[in-house]
Amino acid sequence: MVRGRLWRRSNPALSDERRAALVADLMDARRAVGSAGRTGDAEAVTAARARVHAAKVALGERGPPWWDDGAPDLNRHMARNTPYAEWFAALEASNSPP
């Protein structure tokens, strides 16, 4: 969760080696987005963003859910607007200063 928004984690069934390779691909693609953006190459930005998306799908952070327990995919939803609202409120309360 980031700033109250739920984000999907990587598929825990991936091996450590596969996850590391995919994360390296993702970081390379993100660097390519930045580099292409600095040079103003719109086609290269588009291609690099496609690489970012492909890496995130392979990691399980986007695309079809990797879990099979029937839980909904609430990726990118605000926690307060989901079935996790009560949990999130308690989490916020426990992290607030006294």
Rank of each mutant, 00 (worst) to 15 (best):
A29Q: 01
W67T: 10
W66F: 08
W87K: 05
A93L: 06
S15Y: 04
E92P: 01
V57N: 00
A79S: 01
A54C: 02
A42F: 08
E17S: 13
D25M: 09
E61K: 08
N95F: 15
G70Q: 04
D25F: 02
R31P: 02
H77P: 02
L14H: 06
A48G: 07
R51L: 13
G4V: 08
D28G: 14
E61V: 10
R18H: 04
W7H: 13
E17T: 09
R31Y: 09
R38Y: 12
T39G: 15
V52C: 08
K56Y: 05
G63E: 00
N81T: 15
Y84E: 12
A42S: 14
E43R: 15
H53L: 13
G4F: 05
R51Q: 14
D69S: 09
A32V: 10
A58N: 01
S10E: 10
A50S: 09
R8K: 07
R49I: 11
V57R: 00
K56A: 10
L74G: 03
N11G: 03
A44T: 06
D28S: 13
A47I: 08
R30P: 03
E43P: 06
D73L: 06
W7D: 08
N75C: 03
A50D: 09
R30A: 12
A32F: 05
A71Y: 01
V2D: 04
V33C: 06
P97Y: 15
P64Y: 09
P12V: 08
V57S: 00
A29F: 02
W66H: 06
N75F: 01
H53Y: 12
A29L: 04
S35D: 15
A89P: 00
R31M: 10
S10W: 04
S10V: 10
M78E: 11
E92R: 07
G70E: 02
A58Q: 00
T39D: 13
R62Q: 12
H53K: 12
R8F: 07
N81V: 12
A36Y: 02
A21W: 03
V45Q: 11
V57A: 01
S96W: 04
R76C: 11
T46Y: 13
F88P: 01
A29Y: 01
W66P: 02
E86C: 09
